[in-house]
């Protein structure tokens, strides 16, 4: 593998990391904000606008917008069947964030789930990120 190729792989890895971290930070921030706002059961859009007065909610939405853009950027560089399992590590990190930041309990069943997802991530990480080189004009 030449130098240019390894720089390309590093960019894909960095992008993958940003996708995972922005997913976790966005979701944790948004759910923290929505819990502070409280239950919204209403047909009026004004009640939902109230949620945007909370800084955690706003931060969560902005970070999730960043997540959407970086996810698309990643899909321009890597296979969908690579991106899906690898970015699932967000589930594991969200469970840990809930445990260490919000002091949520992790049951034995959830530990098993965390191990299974981690194994899936490791398995996908061992495959090359992109396998469709040069065939993009034939897609759909």
């Amino acid at each position: 593998m030449d130098l240019r190729n390894s720089a390309r792989t590093q960019k894909t890895q960095l992008l993958t990391l940003i996708v995972i971290v922005s997913n976790v930070v966005g979701n944790v921030s948004l759910s923290h904000g929505m819990r502070q706002v409280g239950k919204i059961v209403s047909a009026s859009p004004l009640d939902y606008a109230r949620a945007f007065a909370n800084p955690w909610t706003v931060a969560g939405v902005l970070v999730l917008a960043l997540w959407m853009i970086t996810d698309l950027a990643l899909l321009s560089r890597a296979d969908l069947s690579f991106v899906l399992p690898v970015t699932a590590s967000a589930y594991v990190l969200i469970a840990f964030a809930g445990h260490f930041l919000l002091h949520e309990h992790i049951s034995a069943q959830r530990w098993v789930a965390i191990v299974l997802i981690t194994l899936g991530v490791v398995l996908a990480e061992e495959t090359p990120p992109r396998t469709t080189e040069g065939t993009r004009e034939h897609l759909i």
């Binding site: 296979d79 069947s81 965390i114 299974l116 899936g120 495959t127 396998t131 897609l139």
Partner: peptide, 19 residues
């Protein structure tokens, strides 16, 4: 999408789905 979905990727998707 014509990606090369090897047994590792099937395994990864199944483990994640079950997890």
């Amino acid at each position: 999408l014509k990606e090369k979905v090897t047994w590792r990727r099937w395994g990864a998707a199944s483990l994640v789905a079950f997890g």
